[in-house]
Design a protein around this nucleic acid. Sequence first.
DNA 1: CAGGATCCTTTACGATACTG
DNA 2: CAGTATCGTAAAGGATCCTG
Lengths: 121, 121
Amino acid sequence: MKKKAATGMHGDCGPKHLAIKDTMELLSGKWKIQIIGALMRNGTMRFMDLLREVDGIAAKMLSKELQELEINELVKRTVCDTKPITVEYEMTTYGRTLEKVIAELAHWGELHRKRIFKKSK
Amino acid sequence: MKKKAATGMHGDCGPKHLAIKDTMELLSGKWKIQIIGALMRNGTMRFMDLLREVDGIAAKMLSKELQELEINELVKRTVCDTKPITVEYEMTTYGRTLEKVIAELAHWGELHRKRIFKKSK
DNA sequence: CAGGATCCTTTACGATACTG
DNA sequence: CAGTATCGTAAAGGATCCTG
């Protein structure tokens, strides 16, 4: 079964709402943002490097998430012709356009933490 | 069991990453953004109004999502003393600070749709 | 090394019925 | 009207083993 990029083409026409949903689905889940973050900080990384840096992730998950990111052209996958082959991943320039979005998420999140912490004492 | 606002205090200190996660968790799921969108567009709405406007949502879900939004101070809940009681919901001014974040999500999502559609023909 | 296959657990979500 | 309770399904995520 062929996989497709995230662009939910359901008949109903909520205009902006679908675009938001696309972005959210791309970034949702337990690992996507951590993987993107690691790649943005470190540049090119091998599968193993990611497996170590992303903390608790299992190989299966990492593999699956990277495929999604690749399909959506956020990440470039390069197979290196070494003895046991290695694979390198890096953000595409397109993928880096997410930086603004993520920065906004981080900024609001920090405000929110401050606000909620203050209330709880 | 008392519910708490979304501020994942796990021991590990990924600094920005936790803030991002908070924001994502708050907006994730099938309904949150649609509910927020409806309230932002329409101002004050009763439970029933939301039930109709948010399309396929079930009362249980709507109720649960609204509670989360209320706990995080994004939405204000007001019980009206009518015959069968009614309840009104509206965005708090704090909740409206999400507008920028959501706008960013929408903007990037639209770029992404154009990009992915173009490739598929 | 990079990942696919299999199996299992957990969480999200949904349908229906009921109450103040 | 505005929910809560109960139950059931589907999807996300995790553990382990296997292969080129």
